[in-house]
Design a protein around this nucleic acid. Structure first.
Length: 273
DNA sequence: ATGGTCGGCAACCGA
């Protein structure tokens, strides 16, 4: 009996400010699991009750005051969750939840939710410590044993990875090549993370190049829709084992046009298990 | 070539 599982990743840029927008999305799409980034909310102030009322009873929280913050919210119970830190910082940029028997799964699935550092404006690690941090973070991801699923393992990695690695993940490869998020060094490092864990890029499985594919449009462009100078900063990867179980990827671009939107839009994956 | 806009949180930092 095939079982459908849907997972959404969304950089919400303050979960408290946009709780009504999130609620609207959940009522419309009803994903089984919602992974948020940039919640900007300490765990003791997280609007758990609102999510419970919406049907999302289970939460794996990793938040902090003011900056960063990730969470996995779920309608299905998970077995356990854990967090990883990177670059010797306490930043809340990762949480992983293990879905298994309690969620009705015979074979368990590990779900990683990431918020990779944006890296500042100057694409030189010598001049810009924020860019150095981003590169170091990607190196640690590449080297992390928990991000290298065994061939038989079922794992998913989602999040705002803050890198648009492919030529058609940006509106103009030529004009973006010196802009942080699309410089060769960070694109190569993200590809190394992917290679090290043999991860499959689900979004590009469904929309191969040369089709343009974006998940983010800058707040600084009032005509974001017509200019359409987007970037694919958000990603959904699966382990080899799950790659042929992905039946759909949906980028909900219209949420960028909402009142007081996030600059990122939700990306939803459907799995047939 | 430059500046354009957000959110948190209360002067700027991070994006």
């Amino acid at each position: 009996m095939p079982v459908k599982l849907t997972i959404t990743s969304w950089n919400i840029n303050s979960v408290r400010l946009r709780i009504n927008l999130v609620a609207r999305f959940l009522k419309a799409v009803r994903p089984d699991i919602l992974c948020l980034q940039e919640t900007k909310c300490p765990d003791d102030k997280f609007p758990l009750k609102r999510f419970k009322r919406l049907g999302y009873e289970y939460a794996a929280l990793n938040g902090q005051k003011g900056y960063h913050g990730v969470v996995v919210l779920s309608r299905l119970p998970f077995e356990c969750f854990n967090v990883q830190t990177f670059c010797g910082k306490a930043d809340c940029r990762h949480v992983a939840a293990e879905f298994g028997e309690r969620a009705g799964l015979r074979d368990p699935i590990t779900l990683h939710n990431f918020y990779v550092p944006a890296g500042g404006d100057i694409p030189d690690p010598q001049l810009n410590p924020k860019f150095a941090h981003k590169l170091g973070f990607l190196d640690e991801m590449r080297d992390s044993a928990s991000l290298r699923p065994r061939p038989a393992e079922r794992a998913i990695l989602v999040g705002d990875l803050n890198v648009a690695p492919l030529e058609h993940d940006v509106w103009s490869h030529k004009q973006m090549i010196r802009i942080v998020s699309h410089t060769p060094i960070e694109c190569d490092k993200l590809t190394s993370v992917q290679k090290a864990g043999a991860w499959v890029d689900s979004m590009r499985q469904f929309t191969p190049e040369p089709a343009k594919l974006y998940t983010w449009w800058s707040y600084r462009s009032p005509d974001w829709l017509t200019a359409d100078k987007g970037r694919r900063l958000d990603h959904i990867w699966t382990s080899q084992m799950l790659a042929d179980r992905v039946s759909d990827i949906a980028v909900a671009k219209h949420y960028r046009g909402a009142a007081r939107p996030s600059d990122h839009v939700p990306v939803t994956m459907t799995l047939e298990l």
